[in-house]
């Protein structure tokens, strides 16, 4: 991946060696190292972009103590796939700009990317995306989880999200009665 050399040279000399590298090295909580294209990392993650611009990238591996190796591998995998994907017609169409916040459906490859993940891996990836400020990856993973939740019962949801039911039996019955229509099948 070609980096913007012009910009790199214009910067102060202190980080010359680093600015010339095309990749950054990231270190997971369990000490594993991953390389990712600097361009993709800066474009897809606001946190990594900030670290690159601020020169706080470590050549020997930037510590990401909050992210496990499996999740970080998925993050890096996503960045690489994203760099290689061709944006769909919908993303590049220059139709008039709408007023609402942009909400783009997952692309086909993004769907496949999250579909192969286990529940665990998916939830870890959501948190990694959130921590690294990766808006698009957060969109795609949250979309996948919300798809899995449709049609599920509150009991199943508590199990998936590890939530304790803090309603009394009577309170729960009151809600079920008031909102009975929402408990029928979708």
């Amino acid at each position: 991946m070609e980096v913007d050399k012009g910009k790199g040279e214009a910067e102060e000399t202190r980080k010359v060696a680093e600015a010339d590298r095309d990749t950054v090295t990231l270190k997971s909580s369990d000490g594993k190292l991953f390389e990712v294209s600097k361009e993709a990392a800066a474009r897809l993650s606001t946190v990594l972009a900030g670290m690159i611009a601020g020169g706080s990238i470590d050549d020997n591996g930037t510590d990401l103590k909050q992210i496990g190796s499996e999740a970080l591998e998925n993050v890096v995998d996503y960045c690489n796939k994203h760099a290689n994907s061709i944006p769909s017609a919908a993303l590049i169409s220059s139709s008039i700009s709408f007023n609402t916040a942009p909400f783009k459906e997952p692309e086909e490859w993004e769907r496949k990317f999250v579909d192969r993940l286990s529940h665990d891996a998916l939830f870890d990836l959501v948190e990694a995306a959130n921590f690294l400020g990766m808006e698009r990856l957060l969109d795609v993973t949250c979309h996948k989880i919300s798809e899995m939740m449709k049609g599920k019962s509150p009991d199943q949801i508590r199990e998936v999200f590890n939530i304790k039911n803090d309603y009394t039996k009577e309170e729960l019955e009151e809600i079920r009665q008031e909102l009975a229509w929402a408990f029928y099948d979708d």
Binding site: S153, I157, K164, N165, D166, Y167, I175, R176
Partner: peptide, 8 residues
Amino acid sequence: TRFKSVSK
């Protein structure tokens, strides 16, 4: 609406 009954 259904998930309002998951937790407070």
